[in-house]
């Protein structure tokens, strides 16, 4: 779809805002609707839009497969790691009260990292599935 001028211009204008909105949903999720899951999906959708308009190879150059696959596992590790940190600091598994001196600050910190973990895994998985589906056709064609 590289030939469509309007699509390209509109996508170029939209994608930065989609990414910023994803960050907003991620970090403002404490105060407004949203959170890690939604932010991850929105960020992945921005990259998908890029891939649809400018072609899969350029999307793969922007966010390489190795990065995506690392993200898939890294998010779960962050989430589980927060639980282990709580364990190490003398609390229960996934106990956020011990993460900071002030229990409320500990809660905020725990929720923050947990949401980041969710966002990373979700956007990694979405992007990976998109790459897999979109990439198969091309391989069949080249064969």
């Amino acid at each position: 779809m590289k030939g469509f001028l309007v699509l390209r211009i509109v996508a170029k204008m939209l994608i930065p805002y989609i990414l910023v909105f994803a960050l907003y949903v991620q970090f403002h999720g404490d105060y407004s609707p949203g959170g890690g899951f939604q932010a991850g999906v929105i960020a992945a959708a921005a990259i998908m839009l890029y891939g649809l308009i400018f072609g899969l190879p350029s999307a793969r150059r922007l966010v390489p497969d190795a990065v995506v696959e690392t993200m898939v596992g890294l998010g779960v590790l962050i989430y589980a790691g927060v639980g282990l940190v709580g364990l190490a600091l003398g609390g229960n598994y996934l106990d956020y009260f011990v993460l900071a001196r002030d229990p409320v600050a500990g809660q905020l910190r725990g929720i923050f990292w947990v949401e980041i973990g969710v966002a990373i895994t979700v956007s990694g998985v979405m992007l990976k599935i998109f790459y897999m589906f979109a990439g198969r056709r091309r391989r069949d064609d080249t064969r």
């Binding site: 404490d30 105060y31 989430y79 639980g83 996934l94 409320v104 809660q107 969710v118 895994t121």
Partner: peptide, 29 residues
């Protein structure tokens, strides 16, 4: 007052029901 997060949905998801959300993330993974 307990979590300092005004959005109760986020508080329940990430804190009170942290185990469930961990399982959910693992399902996505």
């Amino acid at each position: 007052t307990e979590t300092g997060v005004p959005n109760v949905v986020t508080a329940v998801l990430a804190s009170y029901r942290g185990y469930d959300t961990l399982g959910e993330t693992t399902v996505v993974f």
